[in-house]
């Protein structure tokens, strides 16, 4: 059984709200058992896409197969294949931990031994063993999140959708949460996760980036860094960061510029240029003291800023 099946196949998925196109002919495939990162700014169409894939919003056109079932023709079958956890906590705050688990187990028809077994598992992953009687409202955010994920997959779905599961959670809890996602993936569950934390994107097997409803890049983190930016990127540290950026921006051979802390990243339009040219402009012509100029491998952030800028000019 080495054949890699596709868990999700999205084809020309489109959603229009009146004259506004929220999702515009998006196509991608997600392989079974992988962690698939879905990136984009707020309002780019991530949630709309997910809501169509889980069968609670009807696409305007296009289709997708989720777990082998069409979201247009068999949305009810799709629902038997998936688990879903949204950015809002989907637990009942006025129920206890155990009552929440019991409710979701009941909705998915888990009874008897199977229920006991899954309850134990959820309590373990949420680190809530012995705390079943606590009101969910009283739990800390990170724990609540793990409990929400646990209950979302209590019926052991083949595919789980996580819509910005870690927004508003401290870094340690985020780390723990990602360990849980990795465990699920290792167990064969396909995980599609939306996020705008780029460090989280590095954990994904595959990534897509959407902007203004359109897919603008896809591939794994490494491919994105090498395929989408062919130009050289220089990291420059100087005395006057903002002034330096303003001066460099005016040069024809300099593409996008962005500030990273006390340094600037510039993407070159002309790969023949280099450190000497930077020092010439800044130090010789403008007498700004330059500490260092390094050629760097782009970060995902560089890639995305580059792609979003490029997309902006394409749109306008």
């Amino acid at each position: 059984m080495d054949i890699q099946m596709n868990s999700i196949e999205v084809k020309d998925l489109t959603k229009q709200f009146g004259s506004f196109t929220a999702v515009d002919k998006v196509s991608f495939t997600v392989k079974q058992g992988e962690i698939f990162g879905f990136l984009g700014a707020n309002g780019a169409g991530k949630s709309t896409t997910i809501r169509m894939l889980i069968g609670i919003l009807e696409p305007t056109s296009g289709d997708a197969l989720v777990g082998g079932y069409s979201i247009m023709k068999q949305p009810d079958k799709v629902k038997t294949q998936i688990g879903y956890m949204s950015q809002k906590f989907s637990l009942y705050n006025d129920l206890t931990v155990e009552e929440n688990i019991r409710f979701f187990a009941g909705v998915y028809g888990l009874t008897g031994k199977k229920y006991e077994e899954r309850k134990k598992w959820v309590l373990k992953v949420a680190n809530l063993e012995g705390k079943e009687k606590l009101l969910t409202n009283s739990l800390p955010g990170g724990i609540k999140q793990r409990l929400a994920l646990g209950t979302a997959v209590i019926h052991e779905p083949k595919i789980v959708f996580l819509d910005e599961p870690t927004s508003g959670v401290d870094p340690v809890s985020r780390r723990n949460f990602w360990d849980l996602i990795n465990d699920l993936s290792a167990g064969g569950t396909t995980v599609l996760v939306t996020t705008h934390y780029l460090d989280e994107a590095e954990f994904c097997n595959d990534i897509i980036l959407i902007n203004a409803g359109r897919l603008i890049a896809q591939g794994n983190a490494k491919a994105l860094k090498t395929n989408y930016i062919k130009n050289t990127i220089l990291e420059i540290e100087s005395d006057r960061v903002v002034d330096s950026m303003g001066i460099l921006e005016k040069e024809d051979w300099v593409g996008e510029t962005s500030i990273f802390g006390n340094s600037i990243h510039i993407i070159l339009n002309d790969n023949a240029k280099g450190e000497a040219d930077v020092r010439d402009i800044l130090t010789t012509k403008n007498s700004i003291n330059v500490h260092r100029v390094d050629k760097i491998v782009p970060t995902l952030e560089d890639v995305f800023i580059h792609l979003l800028e490029k997309d902006k000019t394409n749109v306008s």
């Binding site: 609670i56 009810d76 629902k79 879903y84 949204s86 809002k88 989907s90 637990l91 998915y108 979302a152």
Partner: peptide, 14 residues
């Protein structure tokens, strides 16, 4: 209001 309806909507519950 609390968003819990989403969780029910994605379940096989009719």
């Amino acid at each position: 209001e609390r968003g819990t309806i989403e969780q029910i909507n994605v379940s096989p519950l009719s």
